[in-house]
């Protein structure tokens, strides 16, 4: 058994109570499923003084559809989201991504908010205490050298949440609650391009829900990922895409990626394909845009060149499928 630090566990019944319990102490952490947080506590990466368990808060557990827009509470489990036929029918990429996270047991209690706020991951970070200590730790935690890019002062740990790209292509926003009150921001603004400090949350702030507007009429979307073990692993690369076609021409095309950068993001520069057929040349250009904007580093046991190739290939395959279906 690895070391568990002493901490207090709070189980608040409301969001306001949860935020009040977390206020003022930067070492308090929010807990939902715990599939990421508890592992990191056991590895000595997180040393919380207290955990605020969000799983008993009714407000966070609802999936609502109102006027065509979707609202998913942060404590909704990935299994529930994946199995909701209303979500799969309209926001297919979101349901496919939820169903592709880890394995069925993880999805049965892992949550939407946890997946959106997943800590960034790296070969040199997600290791046991003795492994990291024998390697002089790393820039992200306790150390002074990044073993991925030893000359630099930047952390390249990658964001590996599967849900985010499917939500980004649907222009999702997130409802945040913190000591300063409630606010809603675009989901893309939740993330920073810094593996060490990748979430743009204020101190004591948490994600309460994600809102997803109705997709454009006729939109088709999907999510594809590559991983070492098809049954459970984090993505080596993940791609979500949305395509709207009319008379054989693409009128809208959106692609977003995860697992290849510290920050999940929409692929830029593919709007030029709007109004054109998504033929082999267009698909090749989309693949190249994805490859260029993905910056995989040596953060997994799989080589960066492979992840760069696979993220482009996944994007091309997915867009081709969506355009022809």
């Amino acid at each position: 058994m690895e070391y568990m630090p002493a901490f207090r566990l709070h189980r608040p019944a409301s969001v306001e109570e949860a935020v009040a319990l977390a206020a003022g102490d930067p070492a308090v952490r929010f807990l939902a499923g715990g599939t990421d947080m508890v592992v990191n506590i056991r590895r000595g990466i997180e040393r919380p003084t207290a955990l605020v368990d969000l799983s008993a808060i009714p407000e966070l557990g609802a999936i609502d559809i109102d006027s065509g827009a979707l609202r998913i509470g942060a404590a909704v489990t990935l299994a529930r989201l994946a199995a909701d036929p209303r979500v799969a029918a309209v926001w297919t990429a979101v349901a496919e991504a939820a169903g592709s996270v880890a394995g069925p047991t993880h999805r049965a209690y892992g949550t939407v908010g946890g997946n959106l706020c997943l800590d960034t991951r790296c070969l040199y970070y997600n290791q046991s205490e003795w492994w990291r200590s024998s390697n002089d730790y790393c820039l992200k935690h306790r150390g002074s050298v990044c073993h991925v890019a030893p000359g630099g002062k930047q952390c390249f740990a990658v964001f590996s949440g599967d849900l985010t790209p499917g939500l980004l292509i649907h222009d999702a926003t997130v409802d945040l609650v913190g000591p300063g009150g409630r606010r809603t921001i675009p989901l893309g603004d939740l993330y920073r391009d810094d593996g060490m400090d990748h979430l743009a949350l204020a101190a004591g702030e948490m994600v309460a829900a994600v809102r997803v507007p109705a997709p454009p009429r006729g939109a088709r979307s999907g999510y594809l990922k590559s991983r070492v073990r098809g049954s459970i692993d984090f993505p080596l690369a993940g791609v979500a895409a949305l395509v709207v076609s009319s008379d054989g021409l693409a009128t809208d095309i959106r692609v977003a990626v995860t697992g290849v950068n510290p920050r999940p993001h929409r692929i830029r520069g593919i709007d030029v394909h709007r109004g054109h057929a998504l033929d082999d040349n267009a698909l090749d250009a989309i693949r190249e845009a994805v490859r260029t904007q993905a910056k995989p580093m040596k953060t997994t046991t799989v080589a960066p060149w492979y992840r760069r190739r696979v993220v482009g290939a996944l994007a091309r395959r997915l867009v081709a499928r969506l355009a022809s279906s």
Binding site: M1, E2, L9, R11, L31, G33, G34, T35, V38, V39, R42, R43, L51, D53, S55, A79, A102, G103, P104, T105, H106, A108, Y109, I232
Partner: peptide, 27 residues
């Protein structure tokens, strides 16, 4: 595995599978 990868610690909580090694008893 002690980290939610292997599934050896799977139990049912309210009828649904869950990793006992990643779940706090008090929760």
């Amino acid at each position: 595995c002690d980290g939610g990868e292997c599934g050896c610690c799977t139990v049912l909580i309210d009828g649904r599978p869950r990793h006992a090694c990643l779940t706090l008893a008090a929760a």
